[in-house]
Design a protein around this nucleic acid. Structure first.
Length: 270
DNA sequence: AAAACTACCTGAGTGC
DNA sequence: TGCACTCAGGTAGTTT
């Protein structure tokens, strides 16, 4: 389940192999992703890739006149393979490069997308309403406090809301709340003002650490080269229900919020 | 406006 | 072994 660190790790792994290359062919095997892959994507054969950036969990492949917007959904991954490599089940889209390599999107659950955006991607409907990047200076204690003020929604749901801040998925939300000692069900508006600095720092730290470690691996995430990341072992509460807290003698609990698992320590988080 | 809920999808895991 | 079932989760879109 790619979260922001996995997407960033993918971007860094893939970029050197695609930027500056010409797309020799586009192959679409399965158009039915979250939204149908538009024909405009097929027509990019012959275009040069001039950049690969990221906004939230969207990868933006810059081509001559616009961008290919790629989202990995929950089960997607991008791999670079030789053009002759046998297609795997659930490989849906491939960009063949003039180097002979191919960038392939693999996504069993097909929650991801491959779209084309002409012009400024920041104006695209999927991107224009997004909140700040968590690692940018725009995301700070004052900002988050302002967003939380008067809100009754649980703090965990607030930090997972992409209109508030992007890139905080289910795993890192639990981790960041543990690090900052905040109970996941606490109403956002009832979190004391002084705690937002800790929460912002925790979100930054957990994402930054994960990027540096190459992304968490859980279930079906694989790096672009097919090797798993190594962050799972350093998760502090996520998927540790029933285990002892790493910093007190309490037992990690699992609850369900908005149909998602939340893990927390009842001793450390209030 | 905010919050709650639904839909999309497949594979892994569990219980019978 | 196989079937039925639950769960996992990002996020746009719809309903309350």
């Amino acid at each position: 389940m790619p979260e922001l660190p996995e997407v960033e790790t993918t971007r860094r792994g893939v970029a050197p192999h695609v930027v500056g290359r010409v797309i020799a062919a586009v192959k679409v095997r399965e158009r039915r992703l979250r939204w149908p892959v538009p024909r405009a994507v097929d027509k990019l054969a012959g275009s040069k890739v001039t950049g690969l950036s990221r906004r939230a969990k969207y990868l933006l492949l810059e081509v001559g006149s616009g961008h290919v917007i790629i989202h990995l959904g929950m089960s997607g991954s991008l791999r670079l393979v030789e053009e002759e490599t046998q297609w795997r089940k659930h490989d849906h889209v491939a960009f063949t490069l003039d180097s002979g390599k191919e960038l392939r999107l693999h996504d069993p659950r097909r929650f991801g997308c491959v779209l084309y955006c002409k012009g400024d991607p920041d104006k695209h409907r999927l991107i224009c309403k997004l909140g700040p990047e968590p690692l940018s200076e725009d995301f700070n204690a004052d900002y988050l406090y302002g967003k939380a003020k008067g809100r009754s929604v649980a703090i965990k749901q607030l930090i997972m809301n992409a209109n508030v801040v992007v890139g905080v998925g289910n795993i890192y939300a639990s981790e960041a709340l543990f690090l900052s000692g905040i109970h996941p069900t606490r109403a956002a508006g009832k979190v004391a003002k002084h705690r937002f600095a800790n929460l912002v720092k925790a979100i930054r730290d957990v994402l930054d650490q994960s990027i540096r470690m190459g992304g968490t691996t859980l279930r079906d995430f694989l790096h672009e080269d097919g090797n798993p990341g190594y962050f799972k072992q350093s998760l502090r509460v996520y998927d540790r229900e029933g285990e002892e807290c790493i910093q007190c003698n309490s037992t990690v609990r699992r609850i369900v919020q908005a149909n998602r698992s939340s893990f927390y320590c009842p001793g450390c988080q209030r």
